[in-house]
């Protein structure tokens, strides 16, 4: 692979450490001209001001610039243009693309049509690997990345940040405690990958019983639309709400994280405790994305190509080539891309 960042499953420990080490070497809030002249294409088919601005800030702090295709997208999409066509065109305008899209698998598919590095900034209920890198960075800065008990709670079924984080954590010596209502457990595909990776994972419906054992508690929002009626939503969501009183049973060193924005799943009285790391986590977003973009725009691909998982990705590319030869329908110009 090397070129794209599509999901957390492709990340080896070495890949993660490469990005995190690079981020740690950057001064937060500093600017350079390392990537002067580089142009980042932002393709957001779903509103996410925060993530979009974080990428834009990151590329500008590297000396590059961003072009936001949002407005163009909206008009093309209403005319029924395919995502494949859109990214093929936009890939010609920019040195790297960032894609946010409501459909699962959108980034993987789009990557087959572009020659520039493509970064998945969220694909439906799929993956959100750049969030994961900043999550891992925040965890590492606070408590290291090995010998940890990490609890992940909230909507594990549809939460793409959870899917990516859980898969990436399999690279480290981490026991995962997945805490959710029965109806919002991890989807089968993620369980399958965790199982394949030999991950240490236990599932729980009750937060209180595992809280004292945790070093990290990662909280995500349970959304109203996942439930048939308001009453049921209130009852269930209430059981997973965190406030300062909840955390009295926790270790003093527990850190509480959240991908933000939050609604009421973490009460504001937690903000003043030493547990709260979610604002620090959010501010790490620019630094980590700077590191990632610096690697992506550096011409060698995002990840080292001698890496074992990267080699597996090359195999995938071979398979894909074969598909095309066998009557795939992806057009002739694909040949020029490699």
């Amino acid at each position: 692979m090397g070129r794209h960042l599509l999901g957390a499953k492709q990340l080896s420990r070495a890949d993660v450490e490469r990005v995190l080490d690079h981020a740690a070497a950057l001064d937060p809030g500093s600017s350079t001209d390392r990537r002067s002249g580089a142009l980042l294409g932002l393709c957001f088919f779903e509103p996410s001001t925060r993530t979009r601005l974080s990428f834009e800030a990151a590329v500008k702090r590297l000396g590059g610039d961003a072009i936001d295709m949002g407005a163009i997208e909206a008009s093309s999409v209403t005319k029924g243009e395919t995502l494949a066509d859109t990214v093929r065109v936009l890939g010609g305008y920019a040195d790297a693309l960032v894609l946010r899209h409501p459909s699962q698998g959108a980034a993987r598919m789009a990557s087959e049509f572009v020659s520039v590095p493509l970064i998945n900034a969220g694909d439906g209920a799929g993956q959100h690997p750049t969030q994961t890198l900043l999550d891992l960075y925040t965890i590492r800065e606070n408590v290291g990345l090995d010998g940890l008990n990490i609890g992940i709670t909230g909507d594990l079924k549809y939460g793409r940040t959870v899917h990516s984080l859980s898969l990436a954590l399999t690279n480290f010596d981490v026991s995962q405690y997945l805490i959710s209502p029965e109806s919002l457990r991890l989807p089968r595909s993620v369980r399958y990958d965790l199982d394949e990776a030999g991950a240490s994972v236990t599932e729980h419906t009750d937060l209180e019983s595992v809280l004292p054992d945790l070093d990290v508690l990662y909280v995500t929002r349970i959304q109203r639309e996942r439930f048939p009626d308001e009453a049921e939503y209130r009852t269930v969501a209430g059981e997973y709400r965190i406030d300062a009183a909840t955390l009295e049973d926790a270790s003093d060193d527990l850190i509480v994280m959240h991908p933000l924005p939050r609604v009421d799943e973490i009460a504001s009285d937690v903000d003043e405790t030493s547990h709260a790391k979610y604002f620090e986590q959010a501010s790490n977003g620019v630094t980590v994305r700077m590191a990632l973009l610096d690697l992506a725009l550096g011409g060698d691909g995002i990840f080292a190509e001698d890496d074992a998982r990267s080699l597996a990705e090359w195999d995938d590319e071979d398979k894909r080539d074969e598909r095309e030869r066998n009557g795939g329908n992806q057009g002739d110009e694909r040949e020029e891309e490699r």
């Binding site: 029924g80 395919t82 995502l83 494949a84 899209h101 409501p102 459909s103 699962q104 698998g105 959108a106 993987r108 598919m109 087959e112 694909d123 439906g124 209920a125 598909r323 795939g328 329908n329 992806q330 057009g331």
Partner: peptide, 13 residues
């Protein structure tokens, strides 16, 4: 999966 990118009219099998 109704939310899969292949559920639309993208030019991929």
């Amino acid at each position: 999966n109704p939310d899969c990118i292949t559920a639309g009219n993208e030019p991929v099998a």
